[in-house]
């Protein structure tokens, strides 16, 4: 049976993005004021795994890195149908950039062992780098296909997938084990169901700390992050309204000037 790992992330609820604040010292998001939700694109990755499971049989393991509160997101994935949930949680993992996150998750995948496929959302709604999936693939020595919009499961050795391009798609066959990052065009994620939540009562979240992964504290979290954030600021989205006066030609001229001044032309 295929063993699929789905990487998921707890992110601040995008609906409440305007309430997010930035820590002036650490330049990181202050997440405590906004409820955490399952990253939207990760839902598509999980749905893909659940559909593969329904059609061909598979064992689905959800893997996440985050504070203990992120356990509720892992539990939600198990309520949606994942067989196992693992949370990588340790104070040492805090403040990780994309590279350190990829390293920690890749170590988790290695510890799970005998994985046939790793599915990730293309990006997270808070970081949106699109780096974690491909970096994990390099660390795991797996082929990677990004922006997958269709998975045509072939056999246990390779899958045929469609990957989105700006003006179309690429159709390719990828050798397993492989890592795919998926787009929202891939599927329509199922809704959380009451009976799914009840079934998840019996599923226990496994928590792995630094020692369980057997890696050095220098390689994870903020210490293992090569990225240095020097500045972060909130974007001012305030709108300005200007009424143009004059004839149609004069207004067109004024509009042209405004667009040039605004850097739009």
């Amino acid at each position: 049976m295929l063993k699929i790992v789905v990487c998921v992330k707890a992110v601040p609820d995008p609906k409440l993005a305007c309430d997010l604040k930035i820590d002036p010292v650490t330049k990181t998001l202050l997440r405590c004021d906004v409820p955490m939700v399952l990253n939207s694109l990760d839902k598509h990755a999980l749905e893909a795994a659940l559909q593969i499971k329904a059609e061909n049989g598979a064992y689905i393991c959800v893997l996440s890195m985050g504070p203990p509160e992120a356990g509720s997101i892992v539990k939600e994935c198990m309520a949606l149908g994942a067989d196992k949930g693992i949370l990588l949680s340790d104070p040492c993992f805090g403040g990780a950039d994309a590279y350190a996150t990829a390293y920690t998750l890749a170590t988790g995948v290695q510890k799970i062992g005998d994985v046939d496929a790793v599915l990730c959302g293309m990006a997270s709604s808070d970081g949106a780098t699109e780096w974690v999936g491909p970096e994990m693939a390099v660390m795991l020595g797996m082929p990677v296909v990004t922006r997958v919009r269709e998975i045509i499961v072939g056999n246990d050795e390779s899958w045929e997938v469609k990957s989105a391009l700006e003006n179309g798609y690429r159709r390719m066959r990828v050798r397993l084990p492989a890592l795919l990052t998926v787009t929202r065009d891939l599927n329509a994620p199922r809704a959380l169901s009451f009976s799914g939540i009840i079934k998840a009562r019996k599923k226990v979240i496994t928590q792995w700390r630094l020692d369980d992964l057997g890696v050095s504290a220098e390689t994870v979290g903020i210490k293992g992050s090569p990225t240095i954030v020097t500045e972060m600021c909130a974007v001012d989205n305030a709108r300005r309204v200007t009424f143009l006066e004059g004839t149609r030609e004069e207004k067109a001229e004024q509009l042209l000037q405004k667009l040039i001044e605004g850097g739009l032309l």
């Binding site: 509720s72 539990k75 939600e76 309520a79 959380l192 009451f194 939540i197």
Partner: peptide, 8 residues
């Protein structure tokens, strides 16, 4: 679990 029911 009840919070999850509310979410659902």
């Amino acid at each position: 679990e009840q919070e999850m029911f509310r979410k659902a």
